[in-house]
Design a protein around this nucleic acid. Structure first.
Lengths: 341, 341
DNA sequence: ATGAAAGCGCTAACAC
DNA sequence: GTGTTAGCGCTTTCAT
């Protein structure tokens, strides 16, 4: 016995092959391309797989085929409700296909994003989903050369690496701002939290709409360093009113802030919508349930996740496909909080 | 040239070895156990790794070593804020260690949970994190025989598969219920959403506390089929008041429901806390910011994630370690919503 | 401290 | 439609 062997105790494809009286490659074919195997053989193999409770080793498969069934998802945050909804969409669609999801959390740091992309690519993912359009130069190069489908989500823009699905953040906020102006508000403030690229583009949409109406006033644009929260929304309303005690509406860069603003108005006895109008962004579930119901920009977060995954699925089935770039619509949910009398 | 080769274009450990003038195994050692390599060799190899921009192939490594650096996390939901916070804790701690996270979303289905555990185990994870203590018999067997550390999170209980970290859900709600009784409420309702095992144990804690005080009334216990939401909290308050128009407090099985109850009270002009007392569960950020601030049971969600990951790290470094079972404390945040005059 | 050889479990390539 | 053979890139084992 000079043979050395590293027995792992694992049930392997050879065990199944032996049990079914075929060769290993036939088992492999039954599992991956059953249509290329005769029905009789297929049944025997299937039965042996079940009898032995065989599960293929994904590492061996990845090594041999240079492919995995893992889709890497690069997100700036796993905490943020926005991405939570997108993730839900991704998981929903992934469940239908035989893919695994692996998430990298970059904490809004381009360096971490680049590292995550490198790491994912070293694992030969089936596809990659990355957030936004502001990758570092290095990351952009990696993505350009990547041998797998790439979907950029959340935002659309020029020069897609491959596929893209999202909406125009600046335009979405312009829409909301024009609504506030049309509703009769004149001294409108903007409350923002973390300044990621999409927040900034939303702020720009706000400024553009007000400038067009001759109502822009930079001191009414506030950003806090803290991540968005209900508490910080309340605080920021206070700061806005210190700067302009006659401010009559706020566009909140997200709904946590809007809820905080509502509470602060209740605390100070400021009537919503007559004294202060409130508009949020994202249309989280509580906006419609609040008293009064709060106007918000409804964003297709789950749909982005779902369709990103669906686009990947289609591409994997049909690699020749032209890369899609999908621009989704947002809709403004006008509710009582901006119905000034 | 009859040799057939499946050139992948990838930079491999052999390329690094050649560049550094050593053998492949030495490169492997520098990467995994640098202390066993002489400093001079180590430097040459490190330099070659950088020069060639070498990243090891995790699939090849997994196959050869029968190990991966992936920690599988089995969660009933990626949507629920509770698990979002736990995930944040897991990612926070994982960033410090060189592990990847892979999440399986079971949608509260024991069958899917079992399948997810089987699938993870077929990938030889570095460790597994599973939610709760109610695994199927099959899953329990798999976990018992698993060759890697296991942490059960969110809840503690008897017969841990291995390690455990969580808190006692029944006791947490008993605490809150006793507070409501002590605050002077007598006709207390319970509002619940999805009936997962932990929700049920919380409801039992509620019932136990009321029975002990002679105040239990089954018709004041409500569960909805819908997942927890602000909207459903508002609806359920309505249903509770239909059943008992003199109900004077609600214990909400989570904070989304509590927020909905607050809004419904505002809508109906029911004074909080004097006409209706409100207590939530989890202490989400908005509870303290609401008007009035809402009492809630603060649960250590992020800490559970963080420490679960930390326990895994310690165990991987020191496999002899005795399995820890950690029971964390919850604390009741008493706020104005239960300060009846 | 370093290396040679073998093998982890699977699939690509080619043959029949 | 099925099988043979080699090899994916790494690490284990054993030797020096």
């Amino acid at each position: 016995m000079t043979r050395k062997t590293r027995a792992t105790g694992r049930t392997t494809i050879k065990d199944v092959a032996a049990a079914a009286g075929v060769s290993a490659i036939t088992v492999s074919r039954v599992l991956r391309t059953p249509e290329r195997v005769s029905p009789a053989t297929r049944d025997r193999v299937t039965e042996a797989v079940r009898a032995l409770d065989y599960l293929p080793d994904p590492a061996a498969s990845a090594l041999a085929s240079q492919r995995t069934a893992t889709v890497g998802v690069v997100l700036p945050s796993v905490t943020n409700t926005v991405f939570r909804d997108t993730l839900r969409g991704i998981y929903t669609e992934a469940a239908a296909r035989a893919v695994q999801i692996q998430i990298a959390n970059t904490r809004y740091d381009p360096g971490e994003e680049t590292r995550a992309i490198r790491l994912f690519l070293s694992q030969r993912p089936a596809a990659l989903i990355v957030t936004g359009i502001d990758q570092s130069e290095e990351a952009a190069t990696l993505l350009a050369e990547a041998p797998c489908p790439i979907v950029q989500i959340t935002e659309t823009g020029p020069s897609a690496h491959d596929m893209m699905i999202g909406f125009d953040h600046g335009e979405a906020v312009e829409l909301a701002t024009r609504h506030l102006i049309a509703a009769g508000y004149r001294r409108i403030g903007f409350l923002g939290a973390r300044q990621d690229p999409r927040s900034l583009r939303r702020m720009e949409g706000f400024c553009a709409a007000l400038r067009a109406a001759g109502l822009f006033e930079p001191e009414r644009v506030l950003f806090s360093d803290a991540p968005a929260s209900v508490t910080s929304g309340a605080e920021q309303l206070g700061r806005l009113l210190e700067r302009d005690s006659a401010a009559d509406a706020v566009l909140c860069n997200n709904d946590d802030l809007a809820l905080g603003v509502l509470f602060e108005c209740q605390r100070r006895g400021l009537a919503v919508p007559d004294r202060i109008g409130i508009c949020g962004f994202n249309d989280f579930e509580w906006m419609a349930a609040a008293v009064p119901p709060l106007t918000s920009v409804s964003t297709p977060r789950a749909e982005i996740g779902r369709r990103a995954m669906a686009m990947i699925g289609e591409r994997l089935e049909n690699p020749g496909m032209a890369p899609e770039v999908v621009q989704l619509d947002v809709s403004l949910k006008i509710r009582e909080s901006t119905r000034k009398r």
